[in-house]
């Protein structure tokens, strides 16, 4: 069972754990990505997230389905990302997985966050103490030259 979304609302880890819950599941893994106050030695005050909504949802679903294909059809899988301006400490992304045993949950949860970071059409602009802002260099999606 898959749940993916993008939202401007504050992320709720309990919503992820409620989705990733089954009497047959003895394990649940949860990852929370948060905005930190420093990047490459430069003090950060906030991060703005821009994304392509429709394509993002498609890619999220694709990544979640890969986890189910690899670690089991009964997995419960959750992937939600924030958009808009976030302050220091706010959660930007939550991934969660539940499964019968812990190994599948850990591995699948790791798959979600790692693949999301290199495949999902999301961009972040850091805002700095000195008032400057910068779009962060990322991972190219281009597959041919």
């Amino acid at each position: 069972m898959i749940h993916v979304d993008i939202t401007e609302a504050i992320l709720d880890p309990m919503a992820a754990l409620q989705h990733c819950c089954s009497d047959a599941h003895g394990a649940a893994a949860l990852f929370i990505g948060r905005v930190r106050n420093l990047n490459d030695g430069r003090p950060v005050t906030a991060v703005s997230y821009d994304l392509h909504p429709q394509l993002c949802r498609n890619i999220f679903s694709e990544i979640c389905q890969e986890a189910i294909d690899q670690w089991g059809p009964d997995l419960r899988v959750y992937l939600v990302h924030r958009q808009g301006r976030l302050e220091i400490g706010e959660a930007s992304v939550i991934t969660a997985v539940s499964s019968g045993h812990r190994d599948e949950s850990f591995k699948a949860c790791r798959h979600l966050i790692e693949q999301m970071k290199v495949r999902a059409p999301i961009w972040k602009q850091e805002h700095y103490v000195d008032g400057d802002s910068e779009w962060i260099k990322g991972h190219a999606l281009r597959s041919s030259d």
């Binding site: 392509h52 990302h81 992304v93 970071k117 962060i136 260099k137 990322g138 991972h139 999606l141 030259d145």
Partner: peptide
């Protein structure tokens, strides 16, 4: 790059960095 451009609208995606 070798695919036909769709009818009316397309998106350009710079390198990504979610999370």
């Amino acid at each position: 790059d070798d695919e036909i451009v769709p009818d009316r609208e397309i998106s350009i995606l710079p390198p990504v960095c979610g999370g």
